[in-house]
Amino acid sequence: MMTRFSFNWIGIACVLAVASLPAWPFSDSYIVAAVIRTLIFIALGQAWNVIAGIGGQLSLGHGVFFGLGAYATAILFNLWGVPPWIGVWAGMLAAALVAVAIGGITFRLRGVYFALATVVISLAFEKLARFFVDLTGGDAGFALQFLGDSWWGLQSREPTPFLWPALALVVGYYMLTRWLLRSRFGLELQAVRDDEDAATAAGVAVFRTKLMGLLLSAVMTALVGTLHVQFYLTIDPGNAFGLFQAVQIQLPSLIGGLGTAIGPVLGGAVMIIANEATNWASSRFDVPGLDVLAYGGLLLFIVIRAPEGLSGPLSAMLRRRPR
């Protein structure tokens, strides 16, 4: 009782603190932009967590869905002036189609086929994006036409207007994950993750459940891709479909706690803070490379000390805390 209660209040306090960030005395656009980057990072982790953490299907190429969301929105806007409010649907549809193709082929099989297929597909999309230069800008990347501050184009010179949609996305995905973990569909996904044979024996349609989980995760990822390109105003093949991006998407849940609602939020926040701190320390003490070393070391430490993610030890700590 105590834990749930204090957890909720800490969460609400954090959301209010982030939402009111621009009004804080020390706040500037650098800090706001850093928080928005964090929120986008977290939201991607939350989307991946649905299929990999809750559904147990290891996607190693989730950048595909992210890249489709970003490119679809940006290309539609530049070439035909389609506003991102409509472009986002095209991105989600494209991600859904690719998800159905990958899942439809590999989810009837067990083992590594799905994970392999996601890698192959993301490599293929990276190549395609580099090849179709006229459409995607190729290696140089794709720059979203900037038409000045507008709600219609979801564009802004200042980062601040992106803070609230990004925060809303993270809060929304958190609530969705909480609901999923308790819902019938979410329980079936977790049953499939824990034991496919037993899930089948329990009457769960394993193939369909995995496919629906991937579909949801892909659409969630594409939506973040749209927000990403609106905020950064640029996207390139490596950033969209590359394996580094795919790994980035996996880290928040792995660090924070796979298959939990709070995990990606915690993991994403801790990672960005650690990254910024080590960056700062490295330039402050003028030791180039220190940041990467310290950052990598910290991640290793977390993975070794809390292999189930940070959310486990943290909730144990809150439970132990005297009243």
Binding site: L187, R193, A198, T200, A201, A202, G203, V204
Partner: peptide
């Protein structure tokens, strides 16, 4: 998964439970 709906239930070999779900959730799923 349709056979389970026809009144034929199966306990697979080797105590196959959903390890990360609670007892009550394990029962609820089926």
């Amino acid at each position: 998964h349709e056979v389970a709906k026809l009144g034929v239930s199966h306990v697979p070999e080797g105590r196959r439970v959903f390890t990360h779900l609670s007892v009550e959730e394990n029962l609820g799923v089926s």
